[in-house]
Design a protein around this nucleic acid. Sequence first.
DNA 1: GACTTTACAAAATACTCGCGATTGTCAACA
DNA 2: TGTTGACAATCGCGAGTATTTTGTAAAGTC
Lengths: 210, 210
Amino acid sequence: MPTRSPISGLAPPVRPDRDTTRATIVAAARELTITRGWAEVRMAAVAERAGVSRQTVYNEFGGRAGLADALADAEIALFTAGVRAVMFAHGPHVRAAVTAAVRFALDEAAANPLVHVILTASRGGADPLLPYLTTRSDVVLAAAAVPLLEWAAAFAPAVEPDELAFAAETVIRLVVSHIVLPLRPAAPTADALAGLVVLLLDAARGRAPR
Amino acid sequence: MPTRSPISGLAPPVRPDRDTTRATIVAAARELTITRGWAEVRMAAVAERAGVSRQTVYNEFGGRAGLADALADAEIALFTAGVRAVMFAHGPHVRAAVTAAVRFALDEAAANPLVHVILTASRGGADPLLPYLTTRSDVVLAAAAVPLLEWAAAFAPAVEPDELAFAAETVIRLVVSHIVLPLRPAAPTADALAGLVVLLLDAARGRAPR
DNA sequence: GACTTTACAAAATACTCGCGATTGTCAACA
DNA sequence: TGTTGACAATCGCGAGTATTTTGTAAAGTC
């Protein structure tokens, strides 16, 4: 994060925006991937769209695999940030917060194929991006849990960590399941899962609020 | 196993065992699929192993796709029968019954590739059997729910049907999720899911035992 | 110094062709 | 009713080849 000081001149003049370049490239790769699919994404096309030379892409990411990694990381960060924002917007209201978070996840997965692929990764799927995301599915699960746990730390501190972890893992698994096989519209699913979380947290609170 | 009636001659001479033949063929296909994988299963090999002519296989199932369907149906029946047996063996003990059922499902999916494929179907996976199982994943979910609901009807009749259906669907989704991405050994997973079901049923009982 | 351009080898991908194996169907046969 | 044998159609596989794309290295530019 070389955020350079405003007093330009003396501050590191070098590298005006090293990671701005990276971000631009990742953004370009992201757009191309979402519209055309990762399989169709050419390093040359990414470079052109990002306004840099192909060589720069290689310098920054090492290659196609590195770019895929960075892309996945960026998308995960974006997604978790969204979940976090949605949840904190509802303050301590467990049901409202979880409902909104689940809806966000379901809608996002429906609209953004990248999120869909990353969330439902792990299955030896057909998607060409997967070979590059080497079994990161557990990482994804862990990443998705972060905003939930942060929210709980802020608004439900009395709950035992183990119970909390189980609740988080369980909703996430269920959300993914409903993404893979949606039997009902998003709204009732979100309501049902929120009810489940309320139940889990209440039970945990009643049992172990030591 | 063409077990014909001992009193040969008068007993229905026609069609001594139409569906015995089918069962034999399916059994042959099943064994070949489990050991060598569906992709390697040849219609000729199935016929030979079943002790019938290749033509008979075509007459009974129409073709490779039909055989795949029948195979899936048979395997689902076998699996649900196993779940049913395991659950009823524990009588009304919710936790014990669900624990055993989850363990059975996890172990079965680990040991029997056919069960694994069918349970985790739907994802546009690499398995060659899938193209023949056209989006039957919802059917599978419904089928897996049957033994659970039967058990509940026998031992937990006071629970509202909706709540019951949700509980069943949820455990099944979670079991599949843990098959696809197992983070812990089977035993603790089974315990945790059983606890979840107990919670759901207790809540439903306390709320709506009208 | 960071980036671009140009050049080029290596690797992946796409396409064609031919062939053997397999599927699916038909009719004669037991 | 089920078996056998024959046959066209189709599929999958592998070799061979062309084309694209990746990945690396150099020299050139602001």
